[in-house]
Amino acid sequence: MNKLLLLSLLFLIIGTACEEVIELDVPEGRTQLVVDSWYTDEDTTHYVKLSTTAPYFEDGAAPRVSNAVVTLYTFQGETLEASVILNEDPEKPGFYQFPAPAEIGKGYQLEVDAPGLIRVKSDIQVVRPVPPILGLEWEETTPDFEDSTKKYQVLLTTFELPGLGDHYRWFAWVNGEYQNKPFDITISNDDLVDGAFIPGLDITNKRYRFGENVRIVQASINQNAYDYLSLLLSQTAFVGSPFDSPPAPLIGNMKQVDGNGVALGFFGVSATSIDEILVGF
């Protein structure tokens, strides 16, 4: 239940609110390290992406950070099992490759030592179990006012693991394209649905066309990943209404090894359950 989304809807109906893009000068801050990594048990190649911040209106890809020493520590409970240095992909500067996918039950800790920037280390992220997607189905919905092509919803059926304290994230691909706009961040905790059977949930809240291929990954995440993503959602998606939360810096889990600094971004781990569907077939 997104309070802000609901309120913004109410507000827009009654107001004659309008928006316009304006030119603005914003101050330039110092350069900070950004660690972007999502390590899952999916059988594919996983990366740690290192970059830095850039001035706000400088459009273009973020500057990549090369030649950093990136170390992955693997834990079983409290015991350190292994540590391995991740190699930078020669064709993709700033991308450091994990040797293998993550394993359920293991704990992972990432350390990054980038030249000219602070040395940071994450907390131990444990890969928690995830319930399987029991099925995906498509269903026709009412067409829009503007065009009459048929539109479909994709509904997911699963169940929630009993015991409070589970958190989830869903990733989606449409026709092979990763959905990564701010509103595509889909997360949930289990406060209201602990142990429940979830039939036919419209998880992506999108309308699809006939023939689109929709691939959904249901992933387990840790509490601090959920908190980080909630804040990310409110800072990037829920903007533009009078009910916005105050802008705030996003503090992830990459903390400076000797000092009080932080790197931006987050290192998260997940177990996954994957399913895909061809809409209309």
Binding site: D36, S51, T53, A62
Partner: peptide, 8 residues
Amino acid sequence: YPDSRYEF
């Protein structure tokens, strides 16, 4: 106002 931007 933001004083910089990054990709995540």
